[in-house]
């Protein structure tokens, strides 16, 4: 039944969008972290979405986060000679998190999540009405 696939599709999209939101939260929280767990400045993370069938052999395309990659853009340099991590020229390497970009990312993820939730609701209504046909 095709309508049941809508739940899988919307569910996979919601999961992917919440993962994206998670990454945005991590980026925003660490926007000023000059040292991360491995000793280097924090690098912004981005999710990579790919369309994958919800079940093997199925035509219905869901969304999957295939990878979480490091943002390759150059790190931010801040002039602060008093900082303990400043180099010989007085510059501190700060994370390459672009706060404006992350905020737009967050809004986009939120909207997509809502749309998918609405989609699930519509499918539910249709299925319930189909069931009511037998009454």
């Amino acid at each position: 039944m095709s309508l049941f696939n809508v739940f899988d599709i919307a569910g996979s999209a919601m999961m992917a969008q919440s993962q994206r939101l998670n990454v945005v939260a991590s980026n925003l929280a660490n926007a000023e972290s000059a040292v991360s767990a491995d000793g280097t400045p924090y690098r912004a993370k981005q999710v990579v979405f790919t369309a994958t069938p919800v079940r093997p052999g199925e035509q219905a395309m869901g969304v999957q986060v295939s990878a979480v990659v490091d943002d390759p853009s150059p790190m931010r340099k801040v002039f602060d000679p008093k900082h303990p991590l400043a180099d010989a020229n007085g510059y501190v390497t700060m994370p390459n998190v672009n706060v404006v970009e992350e905020m737009t990312n967050m809004i986009s993820a939120t909207r997509s999540y809502q749309v998918n939730a609405d989609m699930m609701n519509t499918a539910k209504t249709l299925l319930l009405k189909t069931l009511a046909l037998a009454q």
């Binding site: 309508l3 599709i9 919307a10 999209a13 969008q17 979405f49 369309a51 219905a60 986009s108 989609m119």
Partner: peptide, 13 residues
């Protein structure tokens, strides 16, 4: 419905 749902779900792919 399923095809359109897949389109909307993949709006950011």
């Amino acid at each position: 419905h399923q095809i359109l749902a897949a389109n909307i779900a993949n709006a950011d792919t």
